[in-house]
Amino acid sequence: MRFISLPTLFFASLCAVSQPLAADPSPVVVELYTSQGCSSCPPADALLQRMAQRDDILPLAYHVDYWDYIGWTDQFADPDHTDRQRGYAHVAGRNMIYTPQMIIMGQEDVVGADAMQVAEVMERYLGHAAKVDIAVRLSGTELSVSMPALQPQRAEALRVQLVRYMPLRRVAIKRGELAGHTLDYANVVASHEVLSDWDGTTPFDMTVTLPDDMPAAVLVQEWPYGAVLAAARVN
């Protein structure tokens, strides 16, 4: 009898999701709320790492701080990440937050370790066309972000955000629920800042200075804590 490991099934379910047919799809934004102090999180962390190998997915790991009390302080945790997760919960009418949680395109709440559910939701978004035509250009340290006015013209509450992230970090965990494990974490969010609010009635043009060469992405999201309408990696 041949046994198939849980990680094998876990990764196979994601790979079974077809590559997109759209010529220029917008990447699917997957926010994983995770912690080095959470024993249920490693499968979700591993899945996110697998997602990071695909150009049509923009996976982002937001490490939260509410597991730190158990005895291991997650060095990537940020209370702002916890506040962002709470914001999603509040808008959705949920009374609790948890790890590992994936928020897909700002809309779908999925248990991050449930590979089959994640794959099912991802299939609905892969290959989708962006709802906002976003263009980013990096010249030296200057990042330019531009978008035409929405068509048909309409006023919306949108937030343009800049995310900086670390592609891969390896951590030896010495205390807490995962004591003794050395784990890899992909696309760890180092900062998430608001560039501007925008109503879409006029073209958007903005230039900001990036202090280093850390990977970055720009998100355009209905606000507060609504659908992600477009995303672009900064190359």
Rank of each mutant, 00 (worst) to 15 (best):
Ser26Gln: 12
Ala12Ser: 15
Ser39Tyr: 05
Leu32Phe: 05
Glu31Tyr: 07
Pro27Thr: 11
Val30Pro: 01
Leu48Ile: 11
Ser35Val: 04
Ser5Ile: 07
Cys38Pro: 05
Leu14Pro: 08
Tyr33Arg: 06
Asp24Val: 06
Pro27Asp: 10
Thr34Phe: 01
Ser13Cys: 12
Pro7Val: 13
Val30Thr: 11
Asp24His: 10
Ser40Gln: 02
Gly37Thr: 02
Pro42Glu: 09
Pro42His: 04
Ser5Met: 06
Ser39Thr: 11
Arg2Gly: 00
Ser26Thr: 15
Ser40Ala: 09
Cys41Gln: 02
Asp45Ala: 12
Ser13Lys: 15
Pro27Tyr: 02
Asp45Met: 07
Ser5Pro: 06
Ala22Lys: 00
Leu21Ala: 03
Pro25Met: 07
Val29Asn: 10
Cys41Ala: 07
Leu14Trp: 14
Ser5Tyr: 04
Ala52Glu: 02
Pro25Leu: 05
Ala16Lys: 14
Gln19Ile: 06
Glu31Trp: 13
Gln36Leu: 10
Gln36Lys: 07
Ser40Arg: 01
Ser18Leu: 10
Thr34Met: 07
Gln36Arg: 09
Phe10Ile: 11
Tyr33Asn: 06
Pro7Trp: 03
Ser18Val: 09
Arg2Thr: 07
Leu48Met: 10
Val30Ile: 14
Ala23Arg: 02
Pro25Ile: 01
Pro27Met: 06
Pro7His: 04
Ser26Lys: 15
Ser26Ala: 15
Leu47His: 00
Pro43Trp: 03
Pro43Ser: 09
Ser26Gly: 13
Ser40Tyr: 00
Ala16Asn: 14
Ala44Glu: 07
Leu21Gly: 02
Cys41Lys: 00
Ile4Asp: 06
Ile4Leu: 03
Tyr33Glu: 08
Leu9Gln: 15
Ser35Lys: 01
Phe10Ala: 12
Glu31Asn: 10
Leu14Thr: 11
Arg50His: 12
Asp24Cys: 04
Ser35Asp: 08
Ser5Cys: 05
Pro7Tyr: 05
Val28His: 05
Leu6Ile: 15
Tyr33His: 08
Ala16Ile: 13
Pro42Gly: 05
Pro42Tyr: 04
Val29Phe: 08
Phe10Lys: 12
Phe11Tyr: 15
Tyr33Gln: 09
Thr8Phe: 14
Ser39Lys: 08
Pro7Thr: 12
Glu31Thr: 14
Leu32Asp: 05
Thr34His: 03
Cys41Asn: 03
Ser13Asp: 13
Ala44Lys: 00
Val30Asp: 08
Ile4Val: 12
Leu32Thr: 07
Thr34Trp: 01
Ser39Gln: 10
Ser35Ile: 03
Cys41Phe: 01
Phe10His: 14
Leu6Thr: 14
Tyr33Phe: 15
Ile4Tyr: 02
Tyr33Asp: 07
Leu9Pro: 11
Asp24Gly: 01
Thr8Val: 15
Met51Tyr: 10
Arg2Cys: 01
Cys15Thr: 10
Ala44Cys: 06
Leu14Gln: 14
Ala44Tyr: 00
Arg2Glu: 01
Arg50Leu: 13
Cys41Pro: 02
Pro27Trp: 02
Phe3Ala: 08
Ala44Leu: 06
Asp45Tyr: 01
